[in-house]
Amino acid sequence: MSYDCAVSVRVPDSLEELVTGLAADPGCELLAGGTDLMVEINFGRRRPASIMSLSRVTELKGWSEDAATGELVLGGALTYTEMLQPDLAGRLPALAQAARTVGSPQIRNAGTLGGNLATASPAGDTLPVLVALDAVVVVESADGRREVPVGDFVTGAKRTALRPHDVVHSVRVPTRRTRQEFLKVGTRNAMVIAVCSAAVVVDLDSCSVRVALGSVGPVPLRAHEAEELAGEVLDWDAGGVLAGDAHRDGALERFAGLVSAASRPIDDHRSTAAYRRHAVGVCARRALERVAA
């Protein structure tokens, strides 16, 4: 072959080898499930000269519970299929609900949490869930480890706080008593990119509600005013439930309106800004009804 289009592919066996390799070759692309990267390559949008596969880096795989802090530690290479297994899904139901909406079984077997974070698509489905769960991204590189809250990790549409030689090591999710729900709108009933999504977490430890929205802005958005309203209308003494009184519908309606107002959607070929603004409010309201019934 006369035109040079060769790509070097390395398969490091450990995190150590991975981060030193990256430090020496910061232009290198990481390959986890390849469900974003290979699409980019096929479209000619990215043509990396070198690639490092995460497939043998065991430190990034699976999930565990931090005995000291009680936090859940989700590996950077955790797959969607793993998020759907009952042991993890039982602890983080909204993450499992989001994972179930991603692609097809093949995509869920290959695609990873780290890949979703590093791609940082406005439609990345785990992002609003991680924001609503108050999760923190653990970033590893040859010069050490640092922790970045998910909200700060995603800095713009497809932009992150990752430096070229960084790896998403894991995501730490605080374990609190919560009820959580994730809803996603797409123009088909499965295997569809989000037109909008909403994650709602009722946090019984802090007596607060967190609402994060996907696909209605460049980054996942918190709906702070809606959160405050929800915090006020939930009866925390009764376990964080909505009072069944006459004001219930009015409060939910205002909640939906505040969520819509917090969104910053655009018109594109998938939908219109007006629909997204409307639909994200409907989704958040329905999510709240489910977790605070």
Partner: peptide, 9 residues
Amino acid sequence: PGGAGRTAD
């Protein structure tokens, strides 16, 4: 309606 997105009320 909404399928895997679990949106329906």
